[in-house]
Amino acid sequence: MSTSKIVMIGAVALFGVIGVLGFFKKNQNKQEVVLDTNKSKVQEITIEVPKGPKVEIKKKPVEKKIAKKVVKEIKKTDEKVAIKEDDNLPDANIIDRLFVTDSSRLPIVETVTYSSRVPWLQGRHAWVADYASHFSTTRHFIARSLNKKHDYFTQKINPGDRFNVLRDDKNIKFHLVIDINRSKLWFYYLDVDTNERVLLKTYKVGLGRKESKRESGGLTPVGKYSLGSKVAIYKPNVLGYFQDNKIELIKVFGTRWIPFNEELNNCSDSAKGLGLHGAPWVESNGELVEDRSKVGKYDSDGCIRLFSEDMEEMFSIIISRPTEIELVKDFKEAKLPGVEKIIK
C-alpha cells in the first residue's frame, strides 16, 4: 500500500470520528435544553404557590375587602333582628267582641234580653240605667252593644232587645300599659279568679313634652297609678275653668276625661292633675273640630291624649271597674299582672 493511500484512509477515518463525536455532542446539548424548560415550568408552578411574595401582595387587599363586607352584613342582620324584636311586641284588636251578642263574644261578658220587669228591682220598671247599675257596666257600654255601632248615647230600647254587660260573677280588673318611647298604649283585662290577662287592643297616644331633667324624660311620669272615679264628658259649649280661665273644656280635654287617682309603685311624679283624655278641639272655619295632630306627639302638660273614638271606647269600658295604669320607658319593663292568655 502506497503512502498516499494510507494518508487518505487516515483522513477519512479521522473525519468519521469527528462526525460521530459531533453527533453525540449535538444530542447532549438538545437534552439539556429540554430539562431546563421542564425546570422552568416547575419554577413557574412554584411561583404560584401562596408562599410566593407576589401572590401574597395580591391576596392581602382581597382578604381585607372580604372581611369588611362580612362585618357590614353582620351589622345589617343585627338591625333587622332589632326591628323584628320591636315588631314582636304584643298586638291585638278584639275589643269589638265585648259588644257583639253572638258566640264570638269574650268570656267576661254575657248577653241579656231586655225586660222592664226584673227580679232584682221591685216596684217600678227597669231601664238601661238600672241594668248598668246592677251589672256594674256603664250605660255607654250597653248603648254601643245595643246600637251595634260606636253610639254611646242612644238608649232607645224595647222588650226583647239584646245587649251585653260585664259578667257579675267575674272578678274583672283592667290594666293599661303606656310605652313612653313608643307613644303606645296596651289595654288588658285581668280575670282575677283565673289570674289570666287578655290584650284587648293597642292605641296610639300623645304624651307630655320632653324634659331631659325628669326621670321619665318628659312631663309624663313613669310608675304605676290607679285611675279615679271623677270622670267627665265634654261637649261643645260646656264651659269650665282651666288654669284660671273660663273656656270650653272640650278645647283642652276633648270629649272625655279620666283622672289619675293615687300613686301605687315607683312613681316619678304625683297623680294630681294627671289623666287620660281626648285630643283637644280647635276652631276651624267657624266650627269646633278635633286636632288629631296632637296624638302621637310629645306636646301635653303630662296627660295622655287619645283620638276621640279611642278615648270614648276605653271610657265606656273601664270606668265601671278597678283600673291601673303603668307607664314605662319601654314595654319590656312593664310588670304585667297574671299570665298571658291569647284569644283567637
Rank of each mutant, 00 (worst) to 15 (best):
residue 252 V to L: 06
residue 225 Y to I: 06
residue 252 V to N: 06
residue 277 H to D: 00
residue 240 G to C: 10
residue 224 K to S: 13
residue 301 D to H: 15
residue 308 S to E: 15
residue 235 K to A: 11
residue 262 E to D: 13
residue 239 L to K: 15
residue 239 L to V: 11
residue 230 K to L: 12
residue 283 E to F: 14
residue 257 W to F: 02
residue 225 Y to H: 06
residue 256 R to G: 02
residue 227 L to E: 01
residue 219 L to P: 04
residue 290 E to I: 08
residue 294 K to P: 03
residue 294 K to T: 15
residue 308 S to F: 08
residue 249 L to R: 10
residue 254 G to L: 11
residue 217 G to I: 05
residue 235 K to C: 02
residue 295 V to D: 08
residue 307 F to P: 01
residue 291 D to R: 08
residue 304 I to Y: 00
residue 237 N to S: 10
residue 234 Y to V: 05
residue 260 F to S: 00
residue 265 N to P: 02
residue 238 V to Y: 12
residue 236 P to D: 13
residue 257 W to H: 01
residue 304 I to H: 00
residue 233 I to H: 07
residue 243 Q to K: 15
residue 252 V to H: 08
residue 258 I to G: 03
residue 280 P to F: 09
residue 263 E to V: 09
residue 219 L to D: 09
residue 259 P to T: 03
residue 309 E to D: 15
residue 230 K to G: 08
residue 247 I to A: 09
residue 314 M to K: 02
residue 299 D to H: 07
residue 275 G to E: 00
residue 239 L to C: 04
residue 246 K to V: 11
residue 296 G to D: 13
residue 291 D to G: 05
residue 285 N to H: 11
residue 292 R to D: 10
residue 266 N to V: 09
residue 234 Y to C: 06
residue 293 S to W: 02
residue 251 K to I: 01
residue 312 E to C: 10
residue 217 G to P: 06
residue 248 E to Y: 02
residue 229 S to F: 04
residue 239 L to Y: 15
residue 277 H to N: 02
residue 294 K to S: 14
residue 264 L to Q: 07
residue 265 N to G: 04
residue 248 E to D: 12
residue 267 C to F: 09
residue 262 E to A: 13
residue 256 R to A: 03
residue 309 E to Y: 14
residue 294 K to L: 10
residue 310 D to A: 03
residue 265 N to L: 13
residue 222 V to C: 13
residue 233 I to R: 11
residue 225 Y to S: 04
residue 277 H to A: 01
residue 279 A to P: 08
residue 287 E to L: 07
residue 244 D to A: 13
residue 313 E to N: 12
residue 241 Y to N: 13
residue 297 K to P: 03
residue 222 V to T: 15
residue 284 S to W: 12
residue 248 E to W: 02
residue 260 F to I: 00
residue 298 Y to C: 07
residue 280 P to K: 09
residue 233 I to D: 05
residue 276 L to H: 01
residue 246 K to L: 12
residue 248 E to R: 01
residue 247 I to G: 08
residue 285 N to Q: 13
residue 266 N to T: 11
residue 242 F to I: 12
residue 251 K to G: 06
residue 271 A to V: 01
residue 302 G to N: 07
residue 279 A to Y: 09
residue 289 V to A: 04
residue 283 E to R: 13
residue 227 L to N: 01
residue 221 P to M: 12
residue 265 N to I: 11
residue 281 W to Y: 15
residue 222 V to G: 07
residue 223 G to E: 10
residue 281 W to E: 11
residue 217 G to T: 05
residue 219 L to V: 05
residue 270 S to Q: 06
residue 313 E to W: 07
residue 269 D to F: 05
residue 242 F to V: 14
residue 262 E to C: 05
residue 256 R to I: 02
residue 258 I to H: 03
residue 224 K to V: 15
residue 285 N to C: 03
residue 282 V to M: 12
